[in-house]
Design a protein around this nucleic acid. Structure first.
Lengths: 232, 232
DNA sequence: TGTACTTCTGTGGTCTGTCCACAGTGGGCT
DNA sequence: AGCCCACTGTGGACAGACCACAGAAGTACA
């Protein structure tokens, strides 16, 4: 086993044991190196991996905010991994769409059945209303669309689902953008998408999990079919 | 932007441009460092991240197998990320279970509706039969259980779902192992799990997608409930 | 006494240089 | 012809140094 892997394993053990709760800082690189009897570069490589995975955030300087702080961003690491493999890989778009459907329908079903968080629901509605602006250009519209879907998934409270969907965001954005360009009458499609978004949020608000799930599936698959991306 | 991030970006650009197809090797660390005008440690940190994400594999020595070889193992990066976040306590086990249910039920539904691949189906059955051996110890049993579920998901043909589930494998294994230890009468539970596996495969074989999905959900959630992991 | 400035200290970021372990390669010896 | 061994290129690891940064502590001044 290589040195940085040993360091990583030791840190992971400490994390599992609750040695450094979220918000706490890891020991300084030099201190950690001495404590574990390894060199600083080895410690750094381990911390790099933790950073790439979204486990810690590093900052230079002094004071409480400096150093390697344990954070709570599962989406960062999963996102990077999914992005690298989806963007440069040979994954068909249909797989991405299908996976979205599975995760998002499950997420809204859970969201509808949970006690509703009005503040979070309002955040989702904000994106819906922002998209209703007819002067919005396509790129901004799709930006809000992405945010809407992520926020919607967040309502479920399932961090893993949210992280995976966040990670797929870049991949989804690329096919949705291509799809929007292929649509004949964009204003009409945009209006329809907005109406569908509203219906989904309303279903979640009235705790209709099955209905929300159905609407989400039709929303995602409908757009995918309409744009004809599946035939390519 | 930090040096290793710049290096990472440059390598990523090269990867997406097809500069180093899968199986090809990246330039040597020293060569890459000189080419990019940075130090070797910075290059190493970037390569560490790529390695952790499952993009490259490094090997010492000389010859064609040495160096940083480009591979395509999405599961590696996703797995590490999921595992680390479960370790740091930010990802509740219930989220992992719920996500499994969503992805696996969707996968078997797709698998059942596809034209069946008998060879692949036989591979799945092999694991089922191997688990029926009463002399099998718990660790080996659970190993086959993991393989069974991954192979089952693979039947769907959705590479992304398969990659995500493979990535979750380690995280799933840890809670399943803890769960198995908490079970009162293991032999009886093991027998039941085997029977459930058989029923799932049979449902897929007769193209009963809805049935297979229901059985998978009950299988996963039933074990989770039985072990009482949810109450902790 | 209070405020503004300066210095100190601890942190990660980066580089240089060095040595080691490893594995394939090829030349030389038998 | 076959075997052995030094060579070479690779990643792995380490020591030590310097820099930029940001907060903290100390100091000078009003």
């Amino acid at each position: 086993m290589r040195t940085h892997e040993r360091v990583l394993a030791q840190i992971e053990t400490g994390l599992t044991a609750g040695k450094w709760p979220i918000g706490e800082r890891l020991p300084a690189e030099r201190a950690l190196a001495e404590e574990l009897g390894v060199s600083r570069p080895s410690v750094r490589e381990a911390i790099r991996i933790l950073e790439a995975m979204g486990i810690v955030r590093t900052a230079v300087g002094s004071g409480p905010s400096a150093g390697a702080t344990v954070i709570d961003r599962p989406a960062a690491g999963l996102g990077a991994a999914v992005r690298l493999h989806v963007a440069s890989g040979t994954l068909p778009v249909s797989d991405v769409v299908r996976t979205r459907v599975l995760l998002e329908t499950g997420a809204v079903r859970d969201a509808a059945e949970r006690t509703s968080d009005d503040a979070a629901l309002d955040r989702v509605r904000e994106h819906v209303e922002a998209m209703a602006d007819p002067d919005l250009d396509v790129a901004a519209f799709l930006e809000h669309d992405q945010d809407f879907h992520i926020e919607l998934a967040r309502l479920s409270g399932n961090q893993l689902v949210e992280a995976i969907l966040s990670g797929m965001r870049a991949a989804v954005a690329s096919y949705v953008t291509a799809g929007a360009e292929a649509v004949e009458e964009w204003p009409r499609t945009a209006a329809r998408l907005c109406a569908e978004h509203r219906a989904i949020v309303d279903a979640v608000a009235r705790h209709d999990g099955a209905g929300a799930a159905r609407l989400v599936r039709e929303h995602i698959e409908g757009f995918y079919r309409e744009t004809g991306l599946g035939e390519r």
